[in-house]
Amino acid sequence: MAIAGATIATLFFAVPLLGLLWRAPWSSAWEQLTNHETLVALRLSLETSLAATALAVVFGVPLAWVQARVAYPGRRLVRALTTLPMVLPPVVGGIALFLAFGRLGLVGQYLDKVGVHLPFHVPGAIAAELFVSMPFLVLVVEAAFRSADQRLEDAARTLGASRFSVFRRVALPSIRPALVAGAVLCWARALGEFGATITFAGNLQGKTQTLPLFVYVTLERGELAAAIVPSLLLLVISVAVLVSLRDRWLSAL
């Protein structure tokens, strides 16, 4: 029974991948991959996902540290809030971003006055990716901070290290592997982001049309073959991420 179930589950994951490979236009794959539109989308995807990851590290690591180390009223609420995008349909996230940072949004109306526009601009695509991907980094890094020996930080303080110094010289180095893993996960999620991006940032080549949007639009045009090649590219990247994480984590267990 168990083996039958396991086999079905495995096939359920394996067969769609086979489907992609089966219909891939291998003879024209290189042209498909290097045509102008694909390259523009790929480049934009790399730029926005890396920018989102960098922002996630800059803001997410302090958040993770505070969540793991500082007991304050409302901490659970903040945790729920900051992990919500992981279970929220991205399209809902996109609408929410609109209502917050859109031109008439809660904050957006003031941003608009100082000339900051997120929707239909590259920063909008980055914001959408950041919204859905940062929780991954925060969760992994927070778990690492949580299980890191807090007494090491106590020891550092008795040696004269300020809270900031403890964070920078002790806490951060001790969770470096988790930080790398969290950043990679975050980046992979940002790279694959679709729903929030198309909802919030729109769809414009070179501005907000990231690779997943490009795949979708291409498919909508009925150009199945042209959609498969960038799909395979995303697949290869995903597999590479999983393999790199496995080496980083499982080998140390």
Binding site: A143, A178, G182
Partner: peptide
């Protein structure tokens, strides 16, 4: 000795699943 690694790995697997679900729900 680094028990967070185990925990984080479990978290990661969960996340990948959520991620996949999230991607799918938006495209329809």
């Amino acid at each position: 000795m680094f028990d967070w690694r185990g925990r984080a790995a479990v978290v990661a697997v969960g996340l990948v699943l959520v991620m996949a679900a999230g991607c799918g729900s938006s495209s329809s």
